[in-house]
């Protein structure tokens, strides 16, 4: 098992390197860069203090030098936790991203939990009672959930919230808490706002998971070992829980790997609509404004989270399926 973990960790390194290169390349794609524009602005106003500051920045990040030099300057900063400087915000990237990244994780992981809690029993029910009215309803609602774009759902909830309660349901905090430092009251306040993004982000995933769970379990229910277990005299409930469900969990667990990036993705769009203080809106703004260190670092960190998610799902997979680590 330990060997498996180490091997798996080692394969992550080249992937992370390539990801960092791609992240950097992507943010370099748009023509021109923010700093040039910034310098022109400053020169027009004749601000000499900033002028020297800019020189320092140019030096530090290798601006104006070849691409690979810029990349190495950036990545060597990233390794020690310096993600560069946001020119638009005039702040180090570090001060901007961590709280937002944390909130992105809060939204994504709570949606993931909601997805599981809802999808698991419905999927099992749908498979065990195949072709029952309940199964048909679950299937239909599942398809519907997959077909509604995340942001549409957010719009509908916003519209409904306004019409029914006359309130705006955006944001993660009430106005008085937005700029407050973290406290128990702020945390509770967040929880009361969290359910809307959870529902919105989790819907598509839940619908997908119900189908996966149902199909997996149906596959497993038809297998020979189920008949063997029945022939031993096990009761239906005990049997389903011990055998097919356990096996159906294997692909289910392996979906964590792609579900997490999907949820992070989903939350990016939803956050823009619901005006959540997560990574999505800031990233979008940074991309549009060509605030390259902010955008690049965000893209890189989100991809890293995904790689970690895949790693965790591989570990879970190895835990539920003894065939993985055995060779």
């Amino acid at each position: 098992m330990l060997r498996f973990i180490i091997e798996r960790l080692l394969t992550m390194i080249p992937i992370l390197i390539v990801i960092s290169i791609i992240s950097f390349a992507i943010i370099q794609l748009p023509p021109g860069d923010y700093l040039t524009t910034y310098i022109i602005q400053l020169e027009a106003s004749g601000d000499s203090v900033s002028q020297s500051e800019i020189e320092g920045l140019k030096q530090r990040y290798g601006l104006g030098q070849p691409m690979h030099v810029q990349y190495f300057k950036w990545i060597s900063g990233v390794v020690v936790g310096d993600f560069g400087y946001s020119f638009e915000w005039n702040q180090p990237v570090n001060t901007l991203i961590w709280e937002r990244l944390g909130l992105t994780l809060v939204v994504s992981i709570s949606s993931l939990l909601l997805t599981w809690i809802v999808a698991f029993p419905i999927g099992v029910y749908s498979a065990v009672r195949q072709h029952s009215p309940g199964d048909y309803i679950a299937t239909f609602v599942g398809f519907l959930g997959l077909s509604i774009p995340n942001f549409m759902l957010a719009l509908i909830l916003m519209y409904g919230g306004y019409r029914l309660f006359g309130m705006s349901i955006g944001g993660l905090f009430s106005p008085e808490f937005v700029d407050a430092s973290w406290s128990w009251a702020k945390f509770v306040n967040m929880l009361s706002h969290l359910w809307i993004p959870m529902v919105v982000v989790g819907t598509a995933g839940t619908a997908g998971m119900i189908r996966i769970m149902r199909n997996n379990l149906l596959d497993e229910l038809g297998k020979q070992y189920v008949v063997t277990a029945r022939a031993k005299g096990l009761s239906t409930v005990k049997l389903i829980f011990k055998y097919p469900l356990r096996l159906a969990l294997i692909p289910f667990v392996s979906t964590v790997g792609w579900l997490l990036p999907q949820l992070i993705s989903g939350s990016a769009v939803v956050s823009v609509v619901l005006n959540l203080p997560t990574a999505g809106p800031l990233l979008l703004r940074a991309l549009l404004g060509q605030d390259m260190y902010l955008a690049g670092s965000f893209t890189f960190l989100l991809a890293t989270l995904t790689v970690i998610g895949t790693f965790i799902s591989d570990l879970l997979l190895a835990a539920v399926d003894p065939r993985i680590t055995y060779d």
């Binding site: 020979q224 070992y225 063997t228 022939a231 031993k232 009761s235 356990r246 096996l247 539920v320 003894p322």
Partner: peptide
Amino acid sequence: SESRAMRRIRGGEISMIFQEPMTSFSPVH
């Protein structure tokens, strides 16, 4: 089929071996 009496007979009084030894066991137990 799922009554207690039937389940007591299954495996306890009448048992069965199957054709496919490969698939007749659960692979993860």
